[in-house]
Write a protein that binds this DNA or RNA. Structure first.
Lengths: 240, 240
DNA sequence: TGTCTATAATTGTATATACAAATTTTGGTA
DNA sequence: TACCAAAATTTGTATATACAATTATAGACA
């Protein structure tokens, strides 16, 4: 039998990956903490920068770290993504229940994206974005607080729309056939504004649905949808 | 504003990834087909072998290709996909994040169904049901409060299980291949018991996932899963 | 024919080097 | 002070090179 001249127990980049992973597990690095730069890792582990780069790049691919060019590498914020449900347009949903759909528009303006918004919409900081705030009602009762941010360069006419007949998502889906959608669901307590517009108390838990939609690989919009937990549930049933 | 001297529309390795991905989507390469070697890709796309290597390596990481040293690179065999809804158990999910999974069992007993339970499980009132209460932890931190009700006449050995190695859902899915699953998600405030076992305060909003599973039209179990809203989110992203 | 061996083909890992791009910091100037 | 430009820092990509490890194959030989 042929025997290896020598055998590394593990690839060197794997040693670095394991060390970082373990440090995160042991809470030596907390979410959002910055970890050493590639040059520092290379020096510490006596490898070339490219090897350190590979270790970090793979951990990014596995969702453990995030990187920002020019800034550094950070432990990924707490994130749990267990694929789940399908969620539909609120107006359709209400009408399907044979109830009366209505809405109220509170804001519709052009703003400039900050860092967080730029990340969510995949655009540069300072790029123009349309912001709308509406409340959707079932039989006159608030059911959804809907903030929406739309890439203004892709949908220049967004702010000219009325939205009393057609909801923003209906308008957008006509212009841009939906090709991909992402949902992230959280449980939160409502802000002051949300309490008022949804007519709920401060201690009413709410479902927060973060929805992003793509059309042919273009990220069109990000919506932040808040539902009173005592009036709304999300459901799905499917064959496997 | 500073303008780039030049800007590659896309990294070169991405071009290769896209080309391979597209060829697979268009069925030009079928599952288990061999694809060009790194040297061939390098030549075809006019890049160095390392760049081709990166493209292929990333596609392996994404599950699209498999490689065998000395042999070559092949389109991954057909993989089971459930695009709409993936049933994940919490243990797999945690391990996939490179974290430590553990659990604690608090109860495992046989009870008789009341009206509500009988409805949920599709059985008669008074029928025997197994009830288990566990807390699942990520790195020692409680992440899921899990109550489960199981049709005792279908799973008579449920209460004899240990569940420290294998979670209830892992045990059940071995006995009864999953054919259908229902999820209903709500936002709630935690009960006294949930507060204690999850180590959260009374005003921490929680995600409540109600999950029912069927196997060949038999309703096997109903699970009530409570997650601290500040530690857990549900996500899905899918092509339409 | 059967078996062993050397070789070829292919992927796996590691390094040094170079330049590009994004972000923050620093410092100068009005 | 406010603003702008340059520099420093850090990540992102690309290349050429080298050697290791795995597998199949061709050829030698008994």
């Amino acid at each position: 039998m042929k025997v290896a001249k020598y055998s590394r127990v593990q690839p060197r980049f794997q040693v670095i990956k394991d060390a970082i992973t373990q440090a995160i597990r042991e809470r030596k690095y907390l979410p959002d903490d910055q970890i050493p730069t590639e040059y520092e890792l290379a020096e510490k582990f006596k490898v070339s920068r490219m090897t350190a780069n590979r270790a970090v790049r793979e951990l990014v691919g596995e969702g453990l770290l995030v990187r920002h060019q020019g800034l550094g590498t950070f432990v990924a914020p707490i994130q749990v993504e267990s694929p789940l449900l399908e969620i539909r347009n609120i107006a359709d949903e209400i009408r399907e229940r044979h109830n009366v759909y209505s809405n109220e528009r509170y804001k519709l303006e052009k703003i400039r994206s900050n860092k967080k918004l730029a990340d969510l919409l995949g655009i540069a900081v300072g790029e123009p974005v349309f912001y709308s705030l509406m409340v959707h009602k079932e039989n006159g009762r608030p059911l959804q607080f809907a903030e929406r941010y739309v890439n203004a360069s892709l949908v220049p006419e967004y702010h000219r729309q009325d939205f009393s007949e057609r909801t923003p998502s209906e308008y957008l889906s006509e212009l841009f056939p939906l090709s991909e959608v992402e949902h992230v669901v959280e449980a939160v307590l409502p802000s002051q504004q949300e309490q008022e517009l949804l007519d709920i108390s401060a201690d009413t838990p709410c479902l927060l649905v973060n929805r992003r939609t793509w059309s042919k690989n273009k990220l069109i919009s990000y919506a932040r949808l808040v539902h009173p937990g005592d009036r709304y549930r999300l459901g799905s049933r499917s064959k496997v």
